[in-house]
Design a protein around this nucleic acid. Sequence first.
DNA 1: CTGAAACTTTGATGACGATCAAGAGACTTG
DNA 2: CAAGTCTCTTGATCGTCATCAAAGTTTCAG
Lengths: 244, 244
Amino acid sequence: MDQQIIPITANNMRTACSQCNLRELCLAVGLEDDDLHKLDSLVARRKIKRGQPLYRAGDPFNALYAIKIGFFKTDILTEEGLEQVTGFQMAGEILGLDGISNDTHVCNATALEDSEVCVMPYDQLEVLSHEIRSLQREFHKFMSREIVRDQSLMILLGSMRAEERIAAFLINLSQRMKLRGYSSSEFHLRMTREEIGSYLGLKLETVSRAFSRFHDEGLIGVQQKHIRILDGDGLRKLLDHNNC
Amino acid sequence: MDQQIIPITANNMRTACSQCNLRELCLAVGLEDDDLHKLDSLVARRKIKRGQPLYRAGDPFNALYAIKIGFFKTDILTEEGLEQVTGFQMAGEILGLDGISNDTHVCNATALEDSEVCVMPYDQLEVLSHEIRSLQREFHKFMSREIVRDQSLMILLGSMRAEERIAAFLINLSQRMKLRGYSSSEFHLRMTREEIGSYLGLKLETVSRAFSRFHDEGLIGVQQKHIRILDGDGLRKLLDHNNC
DNA sequence: CTGAAACTTTGATGACGATCAAGAGACTTG
DNA sequence: CAAGTCTCTTGATCGTCATCAAAGTTTCAG
């Protein structure tokens, strides 16, 4: 575990916030150069192999994590032993916000591909955001955004039907890929059908069937985990139209 | 609108944070006397009549609200015109956190009974939380707690069946009443069956049927909106047991 | 290269909750 | 207090998605 942690030194400055190509997505948004360097000084890097946990439910909380490279899922094990996925996170997104409330992580965060995160010790982050007003601002916005995100998911789970949920899921993924400079029309799913289903409150068979259906209708191309969006508007129509 | 706003003066100091019986539930948790007075100085009060909005989706965001007296719901109108309730809030809870992300409220907050809130202008709160470390801490914890709360709701919506959801809802309400010094076994629902259903991802008929069923089984007493919890353990068993 | 394990697809059946419908209480509001 | 509206309850039917099952595909270890 120790050797996974790479402090940022003159040698790997490239990977520091001030040089990071994700800084416009991450907590570093809008920071001045001076302040960026201060943020650099508290960030360490850590690699996580596919399938490995970044943290687990019950672990003491002491840092937030910004995803530098890779893809994660967060999930919770219910008392009955069922896994429920609460989110999928990609580069630039922040993991661990749920831990602040109780100084303990409430969910598991697991890498779905070989990944790398920026470790931001929370006590230091608090000190720094106390010092840098715009960091404090941005931090609050990140937490608020997480709340808003969770609420959209609540709406999805509370009022959409299976195919609507899956269309919404694909559109959301596609948008986030685009925001990161990847193709929005063609990408690899990093998660299984079962994980998608768990996230959307559906069974894996239902996810599979919806994919097949969308495929037959020419909306998407599916080859295992490789997805092509062939008719984005068609997918979007599924959301508006069905409930009228 | 103006006459609803009551600045805190020497005359109504009773209602200031430093004198508030809810301060252990609210943002004021753990503040020293000095700091409490600083918080007092930025708080104004506002009364909201039953059925009236505290704010609406789309309104510019400029303050957070701590509920002093009363009961609220938050909801979102989906594009198709469907209302989805995202939460019910009672005394000591904070409203408006979703607005920070975009300087705009994303949901409506509506009083379900005649209510009174403490208005905390956000820019001033940011300044003050910059000054008072423990206020910053507490503020972050409140946001994180909101995230955790939303995640439990996601689990409820994603993996529980109708009767489990409703049992969980009643237990949750009961606990929150208790925390505020009210009876945990007997209370009035301030919301309609339809609002409960919307919150839980169910139709009003399903809520009604579940109440009747719980009633028949001796778990609860129901007379319209008046609820008595007769067998809390029985209700809790519904949660664990059904999924084994 | 081979076998096992994990993941995916597809079909058949069934259960849960939605929907439709009607009637009975409850609260406004004049 | 009466008329009207909202809210709740209960019954009957239907549709969506879960469940059960089996076969196909991909991945990975040895």
